[in-house]
Amino acid sequence: MEKTWNNKAWFLVLPVLVLVAFSAVIPLMTVVNYSVQDTFGNNEFFWNGTDWFTEVLHSDRFWNSLARNLIFSLIILAIEIPLGILIALNMPKKGAGVSVCLVLMALPLLIPWNVVGTIWQVFGRVDIGLLGHTLAALGINYNYTQDPTAAWITVIVMDVWHWTSLVVLLCYAGLVSIPDAYYQAAKIDGASRWSVFRYIQLPKMKRVLLIAVLLRFMDSFMIYTEPFVVTGGGPGNSTTFLSIDLVKTALGQFDLGPAAAMSIIYFLIILLMSWVFYTVMTSHDAET
């Protein structure tokens, strides 16, 4: 049958194009314009060339925030991915327990970011929080407002609590899609539990795991609300990630030029990472 070509269908794309233009393209263009100028307000701008980019690229503050962000992303990936797989493997595949587990897993994902931050801010307080008070009663010196290590542990545990469910649900979807025939063949061959995981479950979960890694990396690399609510980027600058640093520069100091330059560098890093993940995912699809 011959394909029907109808160019009128392009008009259906128009609403999306308009939305993207107003929500992404025009703001991005404005940020690029700001990044090469200086302003003291009142909509007056002065040409500054590429000086803001040079300043940002030579500032320890930017590189430290970037390093903190990368370390944070790597830590939460190292925890959430194996933990998510482990929980998904142990979730029931049949019966009433499935619904219960799925609802329980979905609950943290339904809570808004700022509420998650507030929950953990209160939870970790030594005076009124269950976690902080219990740890203090056990003689453990825990104070996320004064100790950088405690602040990092709190932010990491909070993220793991909030987002491991996403990895679990993705892995679970991958696991239930494996036909029973694979398990039956493995049973006939006398395969061990590890062999079943290594040669059947893991390869079948590869695609959803790539999506999970991509989503979690992107999200953790752009994290703002939760650490801002819990620690405000402190103590000192110990939990000041790139997005927090950016907001401090743009809104706290009203340095719009350096903030715009930092935004563009941040955007390019995320674009590069997204492209790498996308390429890996689509190359994998092409192979299979």
Partner: peptide, 15 residues
């Protein structure tokens, strides 16, 4: 569009 703070070099870049 003055709020977008256009300059000739950035306009040329996007052009």
């Amino acid at each position: 569009f003055s709020w977008m703070a256009w300059t000739l070099p950035t306009a040329l870049f996007f052009g």
